[in-house]
Amino acid sequence: MKKRDLTGFAFISPWLIGFAVFTAAPFLATIYLSFTRYNIVTPPVWVGSVNYRRLFTEDELFWKSLWITVKYALVAVPLGVVAGVALAMLLNLPLKGMALYRTLFYLPSIVPVVATTVVFVWLLNPQIGLVNAILQRFGVIGPAWLQDTKWAFWSLVFMSLWGVGGSMVIYIAGLKDIPAQLYEAAMIDGAGVLARTRHITLPMLSPVIFFNLVMGVIQAFQYFSQAYIMTQGGPENSTSFYALYLFYRAWRYMDMGYASAMSWVLFLIIMLVTGLIFRTHKKWVHYGG
């Protein structure tokens, strides 16, 4: 190895060491731990495939939390993409004061999750919350939101739109990259707004949509903080997301082996879903030029 290479490695060594010690090693250790009984204090005891077998065959809450998480990924991610793209297109219009609007729409996404979540707990309070107060003005008696098994999950989906400003900025950057001559040519050919959106904007934006979709799906499968703060998985496990259940198994019940098995199932699911999205991307993602 050349000295120049050594210099490079020396510069990135803090990150490399951090990655090896705090990410790679625990990641690999969980493979072994998932086949053990382990409580972090006493040494792990090898138990074979018991954790996986019990997980798949007897743990109703595992399947329920997996379904809740899949449902969230299926609903909240596309919803976030649609809202993000729509907002970006609106905020890409050549109107006065647009920079201010973009800032305003982006601001919520830089507010810490915990602060946003606590505010939403109040907004969604059925008796004294702002959401139901507005609904009442239109003669609608709002539901009990976070306390209602039918509405708690949808409340979290609804709340996810609050942070759409983060992806919106990336979409705006993508829109700016679309060559203006494509629109000019289309307009000369008589294409209307819808046709231009359908045949120019969306295809040219598809690499950005693809990126946000992949990241959104991965984040959806790791959804934790909001449910942990707002509902703790309730009422009646209606918001028991996978990562939340995994956390409880690990830190509340000190069942690290079982939680490790759950984490590997989650990892494989994320890999599978991401792989599927990658496999389909050639059909709908268009790289300009």
């Binding site: 120049r4 210099t7 060594s13």
Partner: peptide, 20 residues
């Protein structure tokens, strides 16, 4: 060039030592 490399390595080592 060799001298520059030497100096770069020492700087990197010094930086690392500083970080530690």
């Amino acid at each position: 060039g060799e001298s520059n490399n030497d100096s770069g390595t020492w700087k990197a080592v010094a930086l690392l030592a500083g970080a530690v």
